[in-house]
Design a protein around this nucleic acid. Structure first.
Lengths: 268, 268
DNA sequence: GCCGTTGATTGACGCCCGTCATGGTGCGTT
DNA sequence: AACGCACCATGACGGGCGTCAATCAACGGC
């Protein structure tokens, strides 16, 4: 469904017809933290690729050893420096994982979506969280002790392989990030970042105009992902908007012309 | 004390007494690729923390499924884009893993030392190498099929956990790299990079003057690690040398005053 | 011991982008 | 409906650093 019907989303949306509407088109999730009921938790666990192939009984055993938690927008799931003795699986919502420099400058190292594994993946040698995780929207996650998790891995080596693959994929992504940070111009970095976000969180044809990135990301957030500043990102995006490549507003972005954006990003 | 003592290391070392000697103080390893004899391979396998706790028979079984290979300086162990169906364990020498941008700009994502695991850690979803690995000096590595490796992990879940920890550590390092790339000045990045290299590859008091980094890294290599250019790195290092913080020459670097270097890096 | 090659150094120039500052705009709140 | 708060946009300015280019020094080979 789109935001066109009467009632529904903000009616003010139909006002600025020709120029450009800057009303937020993001669908809002439930506004309040809640408790995941048990059936939903089981459904979530079963959907996680990680635990695919496990028997009902195994899943049940795992569920019994996990607790469900929830947070509101802007809340921190955990903070860098705290002891990392829990493993999390995001069940609903989105979150950003970032590191802060003494500088004050933050760097977003990952965006977490439902099904993603994070937190204390390892206890050996790295006893404290190295990053802070903060909810971008109301979020719900399941939590398990790392010791218990390691026990599960030993009991189910196949699951261990899948975890290894997942972490290896994260490593690949992170190295790719590190490389793209060295891209010459800020425009390049913003372009590739937007493309990746669109591929991962894009939603097509909400109101007929391109791909909407379903995340409430501010200019400052994008700056933290591109190693730049909010002002520079704003400038780049203004230009992209003038050229008809993207559309954006307060904490939302849509991609109108993927090809031209890719052309800009190509210089990497 | 300085480079005064007679005899000792390379005799040529005593020549440039007052100004600064720029002779390469790196110890050279064997110059030619060679075949690892079987006893040495077993010793290497046994030393790898990864396989600690495995029985002699298990190690023997693993050794039988690995082949030993070697390369000269500058040779490529593998190249980005090639199918990644082997897993490597470095036995001797050092290597750099880097990604190349369409730009031509390279980014070093890891320096590999004996005992390090690399190559096709995962087959799922990432069938091709994403980086190129090149020997910095004569290197020897053991190689195993990824399918066989996964079989080993299933048979020895404890080893699987250790692999997971190792990859998680790599992930942490990579994210830390990504953050430090955003440090304000090139001087900051060079300083932190040198510190990390010294901590990992440093060798104290070879000729009495600080910590020597036992790696043949060129300015271009350091530039690829700091997201900069060889010229900028050269300028920064000239300044550091003038200030008596480091000593360096053609493809070698030594740290004289760790504290002041750390002070520069502190701005991160 | 001499020479060619490769890597390091240094200078000059210009532009990108980080910084500071100001005004504008959407959105939640009452 | 109106207020106030973040967030966004845009201008001006200056310095850091990427680029091009020329020179120098060190290492390996003969």
């Amino acid at each position: 469904m789109t935001d066109s019907p009467p009632g529904g989303a903000p009616a003010a949306l139909v006002t600025g017809a020709p120029a450009h509407r800057r009303r937020i088109p993001l669908r809002s999730t439930c506004a309040q933290p809640h408790e995941c009921p048990r059936p939903m938790r089981m459904r979530i666990l079963a959907q996680i690729p990680l635990f695919a192939g496990l028997s009902e009984a195994d899943l049940d055993g795992i569920d019994k050893r996990m607790v469900s938690l929830s947070w509101g927008e802007g809340d921190r799931l955990y903070t860098a420096g705290e002891p990392a003795d829990h493993l999390y699986v995001l069940a609903a919502g989105h979150a950003k994982a970032y590191q802060s420099a003494p500088n004050g400058q933050d760097t977003i190292v990952d965006i977490l979506a439902p099904g993603d594994l994070f937190g204390g993946l390892t206890t050996a040698g790295r006893p404290a969280h190295t990053e802070t995780v903060e909810a971008l929207a109301t979020a719900c996650a399941l939590r398990m002790d790392t010791a218990v998790f390691r026990q599960v891995l030993v009991e189910h080596p196949q699951v261990g392989l899948r975890v290894l693959d997942e972490v290896a994929a994260l490593l690949g992504g992170s190295r790719s990030d590190a490389r793209q940070q060295t891209a010459v111009t800020v425009a390049d970095r913003v372009a590739t970042t937007l493309l990746r976000l669109a591929d991962r969180f894009g939603q097509h044809g909400v109101s007929g105009d391109g791909t909407l990135i379903q995340l409430p990301l501010s200019r400052a957030d994008l700056a933290a992902m591109t190693g730049s500043t909010a002002e520079s990102v704003s400038r780049v995006m203004s230009r992209l908007r003038k050229d008809g490549i993207i559309e954006s507003g307060r904490r939302w972005t849509a991609i109108l012309d993927r090809d031209r954006l890719a052309a800009i990003a190509a210089d990497d």
